[in-house]
């Protein structure tokens, strides 16, 4: 790795830390104006005020915002013990790693489990869903996009482009309901939800069909349109015309010259799709009861589960920064003219 690359990576890590600190503080501040206190969320609406006050006192929740934020950062850094895990408070919260370790994001107020465990379990399912969706999205959208892009204005282009426009316009929940109606209610060949639990009459593989199907329809049609536009644009470039005039085979021109040059915009879009699939698939996960981080983020936000929202925000930041980094490296590989600036 050359010095330029190391500087580039260090700069990216520095930007990430600053973004994380700013985002986490903003979230803390915003939560200050959100309904309910940490103590009242733990005890529920029917606890009397003396009980809520006592827990507030025990957890030092009356401290100023900055003090609480710094304490939270200390807990994440493993410098400060998490008071929620103190057995004398009697909430029954326990973390097998103890109350002080690096990466301690505290306890989810909603689920009463260590945040690290909650996110750890959910991220596995999200990665699985993302991988399966991407494995279908990339070949389908590339093949169809190239087919449409190299035949601009022809019937194949019109059919594929029109189909893609229609599917892109359909909201995910409409596609989901349509697939449910066909697969579950009419044909009865697929399960109506995907909780990814075994033991029922539906194997895990069939539980994945509908959520993956909706994601593929929602995403592939969009990527297809970008690929089609980029390929069609590249096909009009002078060097392609020159190659044609020089007598190169159309197939070779597409494979060796057009595709490589046409891939930069689609890669950006595909990476954005990965970003969305890993952290933002809220509708599909909710409709199909899929246990991923998207539905978890929605539940956590609605509940006001500050510690879980913080951890999921960090996760989203890591994924966003990570995909951007991968994108930059891909651009470098595809076009040597691009420099690390």
């Amino acid at each position: 790795m050359d010095a330029g690359m190391i500087r580039f990576l260090l700069r990216r890590i520095g930007q990430f830390i600053i973004t994380f600190l700013a985002a986490s503080f903003l979230l803390f501040a915003v939560t200050e104006f959100s309904p309910g206190t940490v103590a009242s969320k733990i005890l529920g609406p029917y606890a009397v005020s003396s009980q809520v006050d006592l827990l507030t006192e025990k957890l030092h929740l009356g401290d100023p915002l900055l003090v609480r934020y710094l304490r939270w950062l200390g807990i994440v850094a493993g410098v400060v013990e998490n008071p929620l895990g103190d057995p004398t408070i009697g909430l029954g919260l326990s973390d097998p790693r103890g109350n002080r370790y690096v990466g301690n994001f505290g306890y989810s107020l909603m689920l009463k489990e260590p945040v690290v465990d909650v996110v750890g379990e959910r991220i596995g399912y999200t990665v699985l869903l993302t991988l399966l969706a991407i494995l279908v999205i990339i070949p389908v959208s590339l093949a169809a996009g190239v087919a449409a892009g190299v035949n601009p204005g022809r019937p194949v282009d019109r059919i594929l482009s029109m189909g893609a426009v229609i599917l892109t316009s359909l909201p995910e929940f409409v596609v989901a309901v349509a697939l449910l109606l066909v697969g579950v209610v009419w044909l009865g060949i697929l399960p109506g939800t995907s909780p990814m639990t075994q033991g029922g009459r539906w194997p895990l593989s069939l539980q994945l069909v509908l959520p993956v199907g909706v994601l593929v329809i929602a995403s592939a049609s969009y990527v297809l349109r970008i690929v089609r536009a980029s390929v069609a644009d590249t096909m009009r470039k002078p060097y392609v015309r020159t190659a044609l005039l020089k007598g190169l085979k159309r197939r070779d021109i597409i494979l060796h010259h057009v595709l490589r040059n046409a891939m930069i915009p689609p890669i950006t879009v595909i990476l954005l799709q990965i970003n969305w699939l890993l952290t933002g698939v809220v509708v599909v996960e909710s409709i199909f009861a899929y246990p991923g981080v998207g539905s978890l983020l929605l539940q956590a936000a609605l509940f006001g589960d500050i510690y879980l929202v913080q951890a999921l925000t960090l996760l989203a930041l890591i994924v966003a920064v990570g995909t951007q980094l991968i994108g930059d490296l891909c651009y470098l590989a595809l076009d040597p003219k691009i420099k690390l600036g």
Partner: peptide
């Protein structure tokens, strides 16, 4: 007995019932 959580979406509960989950 297994208690299954299909999330807060009421439609998902109905879907699970219809498909015998």
């Amino acid at each position: 007995i297994e208690f299954v959580d299909v999330g807060g979406n009421e439609q998902a509960i109905v879907n699970a019932l219809i498909s015998g989950q």
